[in-house]
Amino acid sequence: MERTVVDPLVEDYLRRLDGAAYPLGDDRRGELMAGIREHIEAAVESGEVDDEASLRALLDRLGDPDEIVAAARDDGSGATPYPLGTAAPVTYRRAGIGLEITAALFLTVGSVLFVIGWLVGVVLVWSSRRWTLGEKLLATLVFPGGPAVALVFATVATGTTSCGSSGVIDATGTPVDVQEQCVSTGLVVPTWIGLTLVAAWVILPILVAGVLVMRARRRADTEPPVPVVTPVGGATRWGGLEIAAVLLLSVGSFVAPLVGPLAGLVCAWMSPQWTRGEKWVATAICSLVLVVPIVAFVGLLSFRAL
């Protein structure tokens, strides 16, 4: 049941507040107006306000619209004075979904690193708090191994199917009654089922990943912006530790295989600036950087053994 207090006094007050709150932008103005309106309605419901005098007293206690808006303008810009010398101005940024995007990439593109890339994706999916249990199960079960598995399947299937013609050759050497025949020696699956399966194995995981990323974005937008502590002096989110982490993770393996990326990982987790999600992304990159050379090495060995 929607009930609004209609009174010239209240209307006038809300109009003045709305006008004063204009510079706050639509979102914050709307939130402020809703809060004040709810306050007045709750006061009326509580029986505290029953005549003009008590209504005037209520509006008086709420304060001058300009004063309320001034209090609202204090924040967000990092200009809020912090008490007791804790002097760290805080700014806000939109909540990021780096973790979710990385998870989606590993589940799809990353699956070319057979099993391992996909497994990293699964771990990332389950460490996100922006997906429901159902969505995490969906991401895990559609489909194990990721799209790359379809490529293997396709390779195996084409490798085991041979087609040939059979017929009767007449006296002049012309083929008569020719029939195309395909013989599958390995997996005996009709072609159309095989193709559907391969297509589904490629398309559905990508579709699921796309939908889940969009959902994560929508949910992240409803979250409060992430406070970013900016040290006095205006340093950015890139301190020495963060730069070291990126350098070690990217080119560290050329300098010191294994140890370089691992040191980068330690730097990433020690960073006071990066969020947990961002640290997990660094972890995923690190595991990738460690795994790629190993896979390449093993691959090379087995190739030479053939």
Binding site: G35, L62, G63, E67, I68, A71, A72, V90, Y92, P224
Partner: peptide
Amino acid sequence: SEGTIYPLLSRMRRA
């Protein structure tokens, strides 16, 4: 001013 609590709550929510 009681009204100034609302911007404060909004800020705390965003933080």
